[in-house]
Design a protein around this nucleic acid. Structure first.
Lengths: 214, 214, 214, 214
DNA sequence: CATGAATGAGACTTCATTCAT
DNA sequence: TATGAATGAAGTCTCATTCAT
């Protein structure tokens, strides 16, 4: 999880950077890298492409980052840190199951709005990254994620606000995927605000797209 | 719709065939390749990994296929051909909007069941492949796909069976993604049959997960 | 401490450098490549052999050149550019047919002296390269070449300085080949200067090797 | 030399062909191979291309020949055998120097007419083949070749029929190249017979292309 | 901070060759 | 005799990474 894995591991390498890159510059470069990763996939992206987009030569990036992988690492862990800041606030608010789901969905769309590239990268790469020790925090995050969502759904079923006739894990996957795939087509600055999209998604997920026959 | 088609047709299995069998070998190899592509991503998959999985050397694959890319091509085009066979049957059946959506969703889950790997590959790679002339048919398929689904939804709104208060394109994406992401976690032979999963998905998409307040 | 010494006065860096040296390195490497190509043939030459001859690893060549083919391209086009500089000067000089032939032959041997490797490569590879669009300029050069030589010969026949009883195209091929095959055995720094070789070749081509019976 | 290297070395291999390919079929296949070698170069020619041209699969060629190299070997040695049959007849005829040169040139053009492909291959590949023990007979042939031509020229100079003011080795190369390069453009069945081409070449080589100023 | 040049591992692909059928 | 399939070595090229300047 983010809190257990600071974005930048203490410099244990031989090349101790005396003057680390100022956070602002770092952030710019990571943003650039994230955009390219999101557009082409991590593996298909060459360090040179990132450097081109950043207006420097490939080798120069290594002044700022240890490796291509560490850029990916920092992009994902930064994103997850912020995501959990938001989620934890929601989960600590003591809301009812339905309100919790609504708040989580809304928060998720806000994250998609803010970290679109990171979300897209996460979707595409998370599965195979979890093999590497360095990215174990992804697994941990997934576990907590499932606990939060699945738990809320179960609470809702128990409380009679969510349907009991559905396979609960199927429902979980349905809701989860339903939200996050949006990152694959969402473009910040479009005609719908994250909140508006969240509202419509919630409406569909909760009430369905069919007209109710009263 | 190929509702009469058993999930797995000829149980010819191994090398018991007296016939020349060239297409069979091709099919086997493509199946193997598709599995590896689906598991690791096309770019991250090496030809050697495919060959290993097929029990031969990397170079030997080139007796059967022109290139790694042509394997991908054949996997995707074969899948799309079969998918459209099913879709076209549904669309030609003259069903109402709701029944059409139900049939399309069911058919989609059957395809996921039959071509899980191909579907997963499609999800992951389609976007960036469309740039290459060789894969233009992906774009064409996407266009037809959108026409079929979006058209049916619009028909449904006009007919008063689908809600009119939702952004129709958002709804389209919602339904579309909702179905196909399933390929990322679905494993053939699991506890739910494709039809059962389709039933539950349809129930959620159409009626929502919230309990109705009558 | 001589802290006041502007030890490293930046000469504004960037593109103001008088001796950027990149072209020099390029030229060296191309010379090396040309030698190997000439010795073994383009196809039979491996990139590794060129790299060995240049004292680097095979992959390193790709920092300087796009491909093995682009090295060939640059070698040939550089050679042809210089060749035509010389030829054009001769053709613009307004000489008589015999003097033009003499000047062209002499110029040709000078080119062989200067670009022996490129000439040898040209001889061996030109024919099959012309198929590729990238090397269409070879065809154009051949056309101009034929115009220059054949035209001069025709002028000479008309003026009565060259024999009229010979098939003119046969004569053209004879003269042309007679000169350029020399590249296959010529070694710069041998006992004959290019001019001396040109003189003897011209003497043979113009007057024959038989003793005149007066 | 051919006589020392029979086209087909005794089958010492494990795979002793009980029924060797009939000479006629062998000849056809070698002719096909020679055409492809001449058109594309030995190295650039794949065994599959030869097989395609012969209407069989690549592997099938290995029933007839040990290797690609042995095809080349047989093509070249067959050609050289025939060439020396002709040359030896000329050299044994006891002609004068000028008549000998004339006969050799004429014989050479006849060989080009009959073995155009083999001659072209020889021109292109001989130099680098001489390194391999298997092709040492090429070197031997070259030595005898030089002896025959250079010797005749020297005899001619001594007899006063060839010019004494020219570098004799230069003259040798001039005459030699002048003849053989013709193989690069000659096409059997063209408008000039080999004898006619020989006549014109001889006229140029002996008397020059310039009009004699009497 | 950045560049230019090089490294080295590994990728895709080609191809002569073998061999059971 | 010929085919289909596979082998294994080698070739071109890519790319993350390093390092002196």
């Amino acid at each position: 999880m983010p809190s257990t894995t600071p974005a930048k591991t203490p410099a244990t390498k031989k090349k101790t950077q005396v003057t680390p890159t100022p956070p602002a510059r770092r952030g710019e470069l990571l943003g650039t890298a994230a955009d390219v990763f999101a557009a082409q996939g991590y593996n298909a992206t060459t360090v040179r492409q990132i450097a081109d987009a950043a207006g420097m030569l490939a080798g120069s990036l290594y002044y700022h980052f240890d490796s291509k992988e560490s850029m990916l690492d920092e992009i994902l862990s930064t994103f997850l840190t912020e995501l959990w800041d938001g989620y934890d606030a929601v989960l600590a608010a003591g809301l009812g199951p339905r309100e919790t789901i609504e708040a989580l969905v809304t928060e998720s769309f806000r994250e998609i709005d803010r970290h679109r590239a990171a979300v897209a990268i996460y979707q595409r790469e998370a599965r195979h990254l979890t093999d590497q020790p360095r990215f174990h925090y992804l697994t941990e995050s997934q576990v907590r994620f499932e606990q939060a969502w699945l738990g809320t759904l179960e609470r809702g079923v128990a409380a009679g606000v969510f349907r009991a006739d559905l396979d609960i894990r199927l429902t979980y996957r349905f809701v989860r995927d339903t939200v996050w795939v949006a990152a694959s087509w969402y473009r910040p600055g479009g005609q719908h605000s994250p909140e508006e999209i969240a509202r419509q998604y919630l409406s569909m997920v909760l009430d369905g797209i069919a007209v109710r026959i009263t």
